[in-house]
Design a protein around this nucleic acid. Structure first.
Length: 408
RNA sequence: GGAGGGAUGCCCGAGUGGCCAAAGGGAGCAGACUGUAAAUCUGCCGGCGCACGCCUACGAAGGUUCAAAUCCUUCUCCCUCCA
């Protein structure tokens, strides 16, 4: 795609972008690159603690890929320095401090995953400890002197917590500063990020001015809602679809999203071209396209992207078999029956069995599920929690819609 | 340094002596239905060989009481105001 005029580049960059700050700067930079200048250095910060890339991350990563295809260079910054310190104000979550081994391990995992989206030739993975660990205390003071509390409190999150009397540690003020400094360290021309990162990205821009650099342009991508449709996709809320997950998981989780989310998922997570996308969305809107079909299409497409076409077909067949027709899945996990849990007659209480097989997390849960009619033995509903069964080899126990176990 | 306020189950958030295993919402799970693990409706949502029983639980540790998430003491953490 190199060789495009800056106007064309800008058009591509703007596609699917929520907001661009410093568009004039971006245009200048693009022009310069166009006229035989160096490729732009595009920055994207990654969380060093959660190395699982999910669809939420891919929105910005896909934008990054577009930059690469336009001939620019990607700089993925891993905030290992700050990650090692940890954040005291989030103590309920006891954000754990990472050791350098863990950081390296996470980095490896990242590398493996972003290879599915980015062009490795044009990708630089950078750790911010590279520069920060060499800093002397005065360097931090200098950095701190460049920003004011009032400006810090402009950040929604800080402002809100301040107003509500919730704690904000001084260290938290450092995060945006350090993150902003990363832009200076790598001389970023552009920084990508979700709209929730707006404040942090702006700090980077402002700091660059303070340190005499041309400020980076900010390209903000929309946030992707999680599978619950309520909050943004995040690992800690367990409402995510990881790109490393199995075809079946990706397919199934995609099918579980609410119809209302279809449009944003199709727009933000697939690789449809402009016209194709418009067509699908408009068909969806005027009911020409059945939401079920659209969702299947989305699910298939995602599996194709992160696995391959064959896997997508298999996942779809499997899904249809298990959920649409209610038949058994293809491969059911097998678990052995231990003699010690059986009585003299070789029998065991059903709830006990579920618990032993680790299909339920407690006897109470097993009891509840049984009463609610969510437990099946060889396809037959067992609704009596006091039922005593004689487990046999090959017997299939099903709990709820998706948990199956075949006894060995 | 002084004065006052707060800490509740996965999350948010009610509850100021018994009727509280703790309202309500969200998330989660199950069932019905269906076009799907969508939507909607219903139910469940601390543990225990558990229908009214016991245990654990409302920041921590003690105490008052027949009885505490609710009262008292100490502690930890957080916030606000004053200095």
């Amino acid at each position: 795609m190199a060789g495009l005029s800056w106007q064309d580049s800008l058009k591509i960059i703007k596609q699917g972008t929520h907001e661009i700050i410093g568009e004039e700067d971006l245009i200048e930079k693009l022009k310069k690159a166009d006229n035989g200048g160096l490729p732009l250095r595009v920055k994207l910060g990654l969380d060093p603690t959660a190395p699982d890339i999910h669809l939420g991350h891919t929105v910005a990563l896909k934008k990054m890929r577009e930059f690469q295809d336009l001939g620019h260079e990607a700089y993925l910054i891993i905030g290992d320095f700050t990650g090692r310190i940890g954040d005291p104000s989030q103590k309920s979550e006891t954000r754990k401090q990472l050791t350098s081994e863990e950081v390296m391990e996470n980095a490896r995992t990242y590398q493996e995953q972003f290879g599915k989206i980015l062009d490795p030739e044009k990708t630089h993975l950078v750790f911010n400890s590279e520069w920060f660990s060499k800093w002397a205390p005065e360097d931090f003071l200098t950095l701190a002197s460049k920003y004011t509390v009032a400006r810090m409190l402009e950040r929604d999150d800080f402002e809100k917590r301040y107003r509500e009397g919730k704690p904000i540690s001084i260290l938290e003020f450092f995060y945006p500063l350090l993150q902003g400094y990363d832009s200076i360290a790598i001389k970023a021309d552009v920084e990508l990020g979700g709209t929730d990162q707006k404040f942090n990205l702006l700090v980077g821009r402002q700091l660059q001015k303070e340190y005499g650099q041309t400020p980076q342009a900010l390209v903000m991508t929309p946030l992707l809602e999680g599978t619950d449709g309520v909050q943004k996709m995040s690992k800690s809320l367990n409402n995510y679809i990881g790109i490393n997950e199995s075809p079946r998981e990706i397919y199934g989780k995609t099918m579980s999203i609410s119809d209302d989310l279809l449009e944003s998922y199709i727009t933000l997570t697939t690789d449809l071209s402009g016209e194709e996308l418009d067509r699908v969305i408009s068909e969806l809107k005027n009911n020409k396209l059945n939401p079920l079909e659209a969702k299947k299409f989305l699910a298939r497409r995602l599996v194709e992207i992160y696995h391959d076409r064959g896997a997508a077909q298999e996942a779809e067949q499997e899904f249809t078999r298990v959920f649409s027709r209610g038949s058994l899945p293809e491969d059911i996990p097998e678990k052995p029956i231990e003699n010690e849990w059986l009585d003299e007659e070789g029998k065991i209480n059903l709830v006990q069995l579920l618990s032993r097989l680790e299909m339920v997390s407690s006897n109470s849960e097993g009891r509840r599920l049984t009463k609610q009619g969510g437990v099946y033995i060889d396809g037959e509903r067992a609704q009596d929690p006091n039922l005593v069964v004689k487990p046999k080899k090959g017997m299939i126990i099903r709990v709820g819609k998706r948990k199956f176990t075949r006894l060995q």
